[in-house]
Design a protein around this nucleic acid. Structure first.
Lengths: 212, 212
DNA sequence: CTTCTAAGGAACGCAAGCGTTCTTTATGAA
DNA sequence: TTCATAAAGAACGCTTGCGTTCCTTAGAAG
């Protein structure tokens, strides 16, 4: 048997067409591909074929591991989230704490993973009957939305202690304002939210709203 | 030819299985079906077959009028919007003006048309290359979102004149807060927003935010 | 080097939705 | 009453994605 003519006159080690990944390396590539597909074409538009092709693998490799779209997506999100837990900011001023949190949220939203999650949160409102306990959107609420909310609460509570924040500003609805504006701006401009916009949101809305 | 055995022993005039609508009456039914389908299964999930079946007609009746999904949707939204222009409230107090506007928005969002539009605004972020000038989402922005924004602006401006509102509260970002919270609440609870919630948003967030 | 596992890739049958066409027949106007 | 129109609905071929199966061969383990 003739060794297949290696037309590979490319760089020394970059994975040439013939370069087979296995196990964890392959899974990582599949997860990345899944999140990028989600961000690009949305949940409804995502296809196993699309993921396989983007990951440069075959459908069989996917079905060997996950039995359907949702399982794959949940695992991809889960894997991504394991490495992403940012810390509670504590700058000494509410304004800066809040800005810090808004920046973290905006950065996340701009990443493939964040964009993928936002997509899911919007699209999955439909058609899923009683909402399964480990559906993608439930997982996102628990592991992404809720922790950020808590950090905002904490920042406000500290502000109250320092006398910067009126005590009745520590409420569900007030905490919701920042994230809601972030999403709103993200949707309106159809892309990552500029830092200047974040600063404006904080200084024009959030600070005046909570100030003692 | 035997007259087909009319098994119709049902109510006098309610459209029995054999009852053929034409022209405007049929179109109205198709538009309603389209909006309901949008609200139920989303933009991606909407099929011509689904619409036809819900409207109790055939696909041919659809394709005789519109050449594709988008044309149908645009026309359905357009027809719905013709009859829906609510007036600028003017109660004499910002608080009540804003509450009135929030109620109008919430009511709209709860209707099939509103729900359909929200669905479109979320799903159509994807895959539409340069965004056609008369795509559904552009039309919605122009005819639904923008007018409401202007009414909010107007309410705030009046508030400033009366001395109720600090003058620098009349800004893009401030105006965005109400709608953003409305959507946020709608998504969080996955259904119509309670009136009590609207009142809470207005009294806990919007009024404190703009107060002079 | 040999051996076993699984990756890459192509092909399959199946189901759903598209957009079209055809037939039958109810409806509204002449 | 007659007649042209178009509604209801079934059937069509086509495409896309699903989930499966198969074969060849690369990579890891011994």
């Amino acid at each position: 048997m003739v060794k297949p003519v290696s037309l590979d006159m490319s760089s020394p080690c970059t994975h040439s067409p013939v370069m087979r990944r296995r196990g964890p390396a392959l899974e990582k590539a599949i997860f990345d591909a899944t999140l990028c597909e989600l961000a690009d074409v949305g949940y409804a538009g995502l296809t196993m074929e699309g993921v396989a092709s983007r990951a440069q693998t075959g459908k069989a490799a996917l079905y060997r591991r996950w039995s359907n779209k949702d399982d794959l997506i949940v695992d991809a999100l889960d894997a991504e989230l394991r490495s992403k837990v940012d810390a509670q900011p504590d700058t000494g001023s509410v304004r800066d704490d809040i800005l810090e949190l808004m920046r973290a949220m905006a950065a996340f939203l701009a990443s493939p993973a964040g964009s993928a999650m936002h997509t899911i949160m919007n699209e999955c409102v439909h058609g899923r009957a009683p909402v399964e306990p480990e559906s993608p959107e439930i997982m996102i609420k628990r592991r992404v939305i809720e922790p950020r909310r808590q950090m905002l609460f904490e920042a406000l509570r500290r502000g109250v202690k320092r006398g910067e924040v009126r005590s009745d500003a520590v409420s569900e609805r007030v905490v919701e304002v920042g994230p809601a504006l972030l999403i709103s701006s993200y949707l309106a401009h159809g892309g990552p939210v500029e830092d200047a916009e974040l600063v404006a949101i904080v200084d024009e809305v959030l600070v005046p709203l909570v100030r003692a």
